[in-house]
Structures are given as structure tokens and as C-alpha cells.
Design a protein around this nucleic acid. Structure first.
Length: 511
RNA sequence: GCUCCGUUCGUCUAGGGGUUAGGACACCAGAUUUUCAUUCUGGCAACACGGGUUCGAUUCCCGUACGGAGUACCA
């Protein structure tokens, strides 16, 4: 193990978004690439937004795409606990330390008072009304109140927060691994709340404290955090940890497939693709959302697709397994600009990986579909069908969807093909062919083909001329794998029955 | 509004002071397949704009436009 330690730190406020999954993936790839440690930390400091079940959902999602955790709530580890709610007692001392050093202060303002402050600033034409080095002098805090009044308030448990005392004029620099030097003036940063009145830390404090305590070496997170990164630098500095501060890498965002803005569940719903890795039912609303897994996406395809949304190896290789990615991944090759989410590319990856599965694995998908339909099927037959369908499908369930005729006689016929191909020659040859198949003789594709060719030539018709009509009679559709193989699999007796049915049902095209 | 970040084919991207600006997805066409799909071959298609710097800029710098994020006792 190297000293590379990264963490994925979601907050359990709902299903893990696909963008979050990519963040987790990049963290994981970086950790493995450098033989480092991958930590899962649950950032559940917001009790109001907590949604039960999400922690388990997150873990299952990570496991599904192959992310193995080294430390976390379940795995344990030397820096636990790994849920911030369980670390609650820990944070206050750091906030108090900051107060003592003069870098933070108590604030007793009520929500109403804060709102009044913002309103009056807005009315006075201030575009960015915030609690900062200027306005704090007019508020009720330990900077403005006499010390004994402050003590009295604290001792009588008056609700209060602890705020960071952001300096008035200071240039804050940070060297982001993806973006280079980022400069922000402290005047832009407000006096952020560090400890909430419910005794919980805010994200900023908890995050910095935990990253330090857990010896995180690289903070790899979404770009939405870039504006508050300078604040975090300030915290490291005032806590005396700047020397050991982790390196930052802010990832580009995932954008809507078309139009503007970042990818949302709404877009996904509208365009008919998932946005969550797994099926998810919102416990509050009961609203259900389909996951990539349930929609038929293979984890290796999703991983490959996600990895390439914002990163690429610099070669022309497109297909990368998780292990391949581990071997080539580097933060330097991550893009700066946001990436539009193109589901067609994801589908292409799915097709590629599906094609690389063994027929046995594909057969198990088919058997699963069949079980849902209440259809029994010998394993061997499923393997044969899967092999035939392998190059023709994008999703596992399509083996069943597109191959129903292996199990059920057609109840409708493609009208276009019927109109075009179901002619007198076809009817004559097909009827004769059915007869020539004999009584319940098992036959392989080659034998069936020979029978068909013999029958056709007897009737003086080129077999190619009637092939489509025969396919129509047997499958009801115009396309599909080799017809002889289909007939072998469904058996000659069934073929005869389907032909007889078609002869009765379909009308011969007028001459 | 303000701050920060960004901008190469429709999309994901490679590249980078002098290139026929490369690949992939999608799309179109041809070949193969008795069909459909696959596969193969080919095609369409991009450096946001304006100023600099330079012999030369898509590449470096500045501005503009456009896009994104942030601006909570949410993360």
C-alpha cells in the first residue's frame, strides 16, 4: 500500500446519481492505480434530508460496478467510524480550537435576524448579501457582544452556531490537479457556518476534519465543490494542517444530452434512459426509477462508458475493462470541460461487452427471461439460441424479446412481408416442403436445408425466392438469424404446424 | 447580479506554434448476408468570435460571446 488514500463521500439523501457513480469510479481507479486505499465515508450531517435506505443502495451500486472498498462503515478500518453522524462528538473540539485561535466565533443570530440582514442589504443595493467581515460587526456574535454576555448565552444553551472568521483581504490560491492554479479573493467568501445549532458540523468542517484525520491524500470530487475549495484551504490553514493538506482534483460535470444544464433525472426520464445505477423507489413519495442494471446495462459497459466521460487514455483504444482502466488511469488526462451524456455510446459499449460473453452466460439471461414467462427450456437449447442471437442484440433481455418465436408460434405476421412475398410459388413450395419434412423426424439444419432445396427444385423455384415467405410462416417476422438453424431448434413437427397455420391464415397475393 | 470554471466534428474526444486537424458513437452510401442484425469498405462533419504576440496561431496572451457551477445552520 502506498500512502495514496482517497475517499468517496456521498451523503445519504437519495439514490446515487450516475455522476456520483463516476466520481466514485475515478476515486477507485486512482486508488488502485497507485496501490492506495479506497475509503467510503457517509456524510450524513444533514438530519433533515436523510433518506433511509440510501447507504445500502450506495454500497450495492458500488459493488455492482466492481468497486471494492478498503475502509468504510462495513469494512471498518483504522480511522473509523466512517459515518459522520457517529463522529459527531469529534468535530466540536476543532471548531472550538478555531474560536480559541481567533479564527472562528459564536453567532447567536436567529433565522429571522439573518433574513432581515439580507433583506436590508438587498434593499440597499448589495448584490451579494452575506455574513462577512463587514456585516458581522452588526450582528449578534461573540465579536460584537461583551464577553460576559457571550458566556451567559452559551451557559444558558441559547441556540448558536460557530462561524469561520474569514479574513477581509486575502488572496487564496490552490493548485487543482485538473485545473491548475485557482485564485480566489477572501472577500468572496462569507463567514461560513462550521457548527450548526443542532450540534452537527456543516459539510465544510466535517469534510476537512475527516479528510485530515483519515489521512486522505487526494480529494477527487465534482466541480460543484470548486468554489468552496478555497474555503477548505483556509480551514486547513487555521487548523494548522496546511502542510499535510490533500491535493484537490475537481471533476468536470455530466451535462444534459441536449440543451443546457447539468444532467438531471428529468432529462433521463424524458429521453427514456436511467440515471441511477440500480432500481430505486423513493421511500417518501413511492416514486420508482429504473436503474441501469435493471435496464439491461452490463456493469463493465457502464464502467467503460463512464470512465470515458471526461477521461481518455490518449490512445485509440476504446474498450477498457476495469483492470485495464486501473492500468492506464491518470488524473492528468481528465478533461476540464463538462461532458454531455450520450446514451447511444453507452448502448454501443453494452453491445460490445455483451458480444464478449460466453453463450452459457447469455443463456442464463435468456433462462431468466423465460422463467418470468413461465416457459421451461433445456439448458442446451438456451445456449444454442443465445449463440444465434449474440451478435444481434444490445441488451440481454432482447434475446427473449427478439427470439420469442423460438418458443411461441407467431400469432401475427409482418404484413409488409406477407404482401410482398406470400405468393403462389411460395405457398406451393412451402406446402410441399412441409410434407417432405415427413413425420416427426428430428433433423438438423443441414438436412432441413437439403430438403428445402430438393423441394424447391422439384417445383422449379429458386429456394431464395421463397425463403422470406418461409421465414414469415415460421417466425412471423422478416428478420432474424439463419432460418435453417431456427427450424432445427424449434423442431420439424413445430415447423409443420406453423406452416399449416400460415397456409390457413395468410392470403395469397393477387396475381 | 457577483465569483470561479470552461469552449476541437451533432456527441465523447486526440492533438498542439508550420498536421491532408486523428479516433470512437451517431448518421449516410456500398459490399457481404437468400432477410434483419453483425462484419467490412467508404462518406459527411470541428478548432466560438475579435484583437494581439509571431515569419506563421486552432495551439500562447487579452477581450467578447456562449455554456456550466457556486453564491444556505444542503451536501
Amino acid at each position: 500500500m502506498s500512502d495514496v488514500r482517497v475517499r468517496f463521500a456521498p451523503s445519504p439523501t437519495g439514490a446515487l446519481h450516475i455522476g456520483g457513480l463516476r466520481t466514485a469510479l475515478y476515486n477507485y481507479l486512482f486508488a488502485r492505480r497507485h496501490e492506495g486505499t479506497m475509503v467510503l465515508r457517509i456524510e450524513d450531517t444533514d438530519q433533515a434530508r436523510f433518506v433511509p435506505g440510501t447507504e445500502a443502495y450506495i454500497k450495492e451500486s458500488l459493488a455492482w460496478i466492481g468497486i471494492r472498498l478498503d475502509e468504510g462503515p462495513d469494512e471498518g478500518g483504522p480511522y473509523g467510524p466512517y459515518r459522520q453522524s457517529e463522529r459527531k462528538p469529534l468535530y466540536r473540539q476543532y471548531a472550538l480550537d478555531l474560536v480559541e485561535k481567533g479564527h472562528a466565533y459564536y453567532a447567536f443570530d436567529t433565522p429571522e435576524e439573518l433574513q432581515a440582514m439580507r433583506d436590508s442589504l438587498t434593499a440597499a443595493g448589495v448584490t451579494q448579501p452575506q455574513y462577512n467581515s463587514v456585516t458581522r460587526t452588526r450582528m449578534r456574535n461573540s465579536l460584537t457582544l461583551p464577553p460576559d454576555e457571550v458566556n451567559r448565552l452559551l451557559e444558558s444553551d441559547v441556540p448558536h452556531v460557530i462561524r469561520l472568521k474569514v479574513p477581509r483581504k486575502e488572496e487564496i490560491r490552490l493548485n487543482d490537479l485538473i485545473r491548475g492554479w485557482v485564485l480566489v479573493h477572501s472577500a468572496q467568501i462569507d463567514d461560513k457556518v462550521l457548527m450548526k445549532s443542532d450540534g452537527m458540523p456543516t459539510y465544510h468542517l466535517a469534510n476537512v476534519v475527516d479528510d485530515h484525520l483519515m489521512k486522505i491524500s487526494h480529494v477527487i470530487r465534482g466541480e460543484e465543490w470548486l468554489p468552496s475549495a478555497p474555503l477548505h484551504v483556509l480551514l486547513y490553514r487555521y487548523l494548522g494542517w496546511e502542510e499535510a493538506m490533500p491535493q484537490f482534483a475537481h471533476l468536470p460535470l455530466l451535462l444534459k444530452p441536449d440543451g443546457n444544464g447539468k444532467l438531471s433525472k428529468r432529462d433521463a426520464d424524458q429521453m427514456g434512459f436511467p440515471i441511477f445505477p440500480l432500481d430505486w423507489t423513493d421511500p417518501a413519495t413511492g416514486e420508482k426509477a429504473m436503474g441501469f442494471r435493471e435496464a439491461g446495462y452490463l456493469p463493465e459497459a457502464l464502467v467503460n462508458f463512464l470512465a470515458f466521460l471526461g477521461w481518455n487514455p490518449g490512445t485509440e483504444q476504446e474498450l477498457f475493462t476495469l483492470d485495464d482502466l486501473v492500468g492506464s488511469f491518470s488524473l492528468e488526462r481528465i478533461n476540464k470541460a463538462g461532458a454531455r451524456f450520450d446514451i447511444q455510446k453507452a448502448q454501443w459499449y453494452n453491445q460490445q461487452y455483451l458480444r464478449r460473453k460466453s453463450p452459457e452466460v447469455l443463456a442464463s439471461y435468456l433462462l431468466e427471461s423465460l422463467a418470468g414467462e413461465g416457459i421451461d427450456c433445456p439448458h442446451e437449447k438456451a445456449v444454442a439460441i443465445a449463440g444465434l442471437m449474440q451478435d444481434r442484440v444490445t441488451f440481454p433481455y432482447e434475446i427473449w424479446e427478439q427470439g420469442k418465436y423460438f418458443f411461441r408460434a407467431p400469432d401475427t405476421y409482418d404484413e409488409k412481408v406477407a404482401a410482398k412475398r406470400w405468393n403462389e410459388d411460395a405457398v406451393r413450395v412451402i406446402a410441399a416442403f412441409s410434407e417432405a419434412l415427413g413425420n416427426d423426424n428430428p433433423a438438423d439444419a443441414a438436412a432441413i436445408k437439403a430438403t428445402l432445396e430438393a423441394t424447391a427444385s422439384q417445383q422449379g423455384v429458386n429456394p431464395g425466392k421463397i425463403m422470406q415467405a418461409l421465414r414469415l410462416a415460421v417466425t412471423g417476422t422478416a428478420g432474424g438469424p439463419d432460418l435453417m438453424m431456427i427450424m432445427e431448434i424449434i423442431g420439424t413437427k413445430e415447423v409443420q404446424s406453423r406452416i399449416s397455420n400460415a397456409l390457413k391464415t395468410l392470403k395469397v397475393k393477387a396475381a
